[in-house]
Design a protein around this nucleic acid. Structure first.
Ligand SMILES: [Mn+2]
Ligand SMILES: [Mn+2]
Ligand SMILES: [Mn+2]
Ligand SMILES: [Mn+2]
Lengths: 221, 221
DNA sequence: GTTAATTTTTAGACTAGTCTAAAAAAAGTT
DNA sequence: AACTTTTTTTAGACTAGTCTAAAAATTAAC
């Protein structure tokens, strides 16, 4: 089994994530922005990962993960989400406190550990932010029909199913307004000029900017 | 708080461990052997750690940890032993399977995590190999009067209290002969020419070489 | 379809950590 | 005290990962 450095793993994960919502290849700049690094560093890394056959890369053409690259990425995401679940379920951390720690724990190398942790947690399907946890085989069970809050239409009712997990302040804000997984909401209004969404939640009216609404997913009822 | 690399942390831990049974400063070669590296690499690292005031170092004089260096080392050892305890107590790993994984987990940076893990485990006093777990404050509670099996005298009775944990094969061997923490033994004989010790354990006679006997500690009864 | 702006790659440099080989210091031996 | 052996340090090189600045390729604009 190919042994990867933490940096290589982080690149694979970033490429995988970017590929989730983008069609086709991932550009060097896009990746540089995600990785908080410079394009020249990305080029170097792409060459290396291409050499290891974890992705396909041709000069000026961006990159795309190979199947091997994908399963490595999925293994890291699996670990990340299992550890987040452990921290919240077993050590009573808040959902806003676990991402940074999981960024470290996801690099621990031991399939046995990952699988036993999975079992210890009762084979959870989603992490504390509602994101699906890939199985041992790398398959992600498709989560029930979800849409982004930003795409909801006025009059729709729904239940909070997932939130972006990588900004502590965002999650703390959600805590403050009492939003958590499972919270039911009504879409009351949508401001056409800036895309803001006004929802009714626990009898209160709350207004979300389009930026925020893109970071929350709901299951329409 | 000073941020250390994994390599720096490993050096501090090694120096601390070597200082436990040696008087005075630790020599460059001694450290190189422990770290499975070359003396020249050690010299470079000693300069760096001295610069950061984690240890005292003068050319050709070896090194010794400062108080800051000691508390860093103790924090790492605390994490190592807490994680080993977690793996054995919560994930049902064998005591021969946890050291390598703990070598990785000990570098996770989060005091909050460490302290919550400690609580989750019920504030254990010793790890799965009988080694004491330093507290939050870095203090090691002195473990009850123990001696090395190699120092036991014929006729003595005792209870297995601790074993070295860094050789998988050694621990597997102990599993095979049914030796674990708490096992009572009688010292039956000692061979003067090679230091071998013969003990009675669960009604069976077992012979340990001096090398093995140095890796087992007992509480005399 | 030529020029301008943007993206991407290359070239060269830097740090951390390691290595080998050689020089210097310390310790041991007659 | 002089010579030998061992230990330790220095010097120079290498890899991984990053950076800046400049060159090259692609894309957009006129
Ligand atoms: Mn996360
Ligand atoms: Mn998450
Ligand atoms: Mn251990
Ligand atoms: Mn141990």
């Amino acid at each position: 089994m190919l042994r990867l450095t933490q940096s290589e793993e982080n690149y694979l994960k970033a490429i995988f994530t970017l590929s989730q919502d983008a069609e086709g290849a991932i550009s060097t700049n896009e990746l540089a922005e995600k990785m908080l690094t410079k394009a020249s560093s990305v080029t170097d890394m792409l060459k290396k990962l291409c050499e290891k056959e974890l992705l396909e890369y041709q000069k000026y053409q961006g990159c795309a993960l190979t199947n091997t690259g994908k399963s490595h990425a999925l293994a890291i995401i699996r670990k990340h989400r299992l550890w987040e679940t452990f921290l919240v379920d077993k050590l009573s951390f808040g959902w806003d406190e676990v991402h940074e720690i999981a960024e470290q724990l996801e690099h621990i190398q031991s399939t046995e550990l990952t699988d036993r942790l999975d079992e210890f947690l009762g084979f959870p399907k989603v992490d504390p932010h509602g994101e699906p946890i890939p199985g041992k085989d790398g398959r992600i069970e498709s989560v029930s029909n979800r849409i982004l809050l930003s795409e909801a239409v006025v009059g729709m009712k729904g239940i909070i199913m997932g939130v972006e997990d990588d900004q502590t302040e965002f999650l703390q804000y959600l805590n403050k307004i009492g939003l958590h997984l499972g919270t039911p909401i009504d879409i009351v209004d949508k401001l056409s000029f800036d895309g803001s969404i006004i929802v009714n939640m626990d009898g209160r009216q709350i207004q979300f900017s389009i930026t925020i609404a893109k970071q929350i997913s709901i299951k329409p009822l």
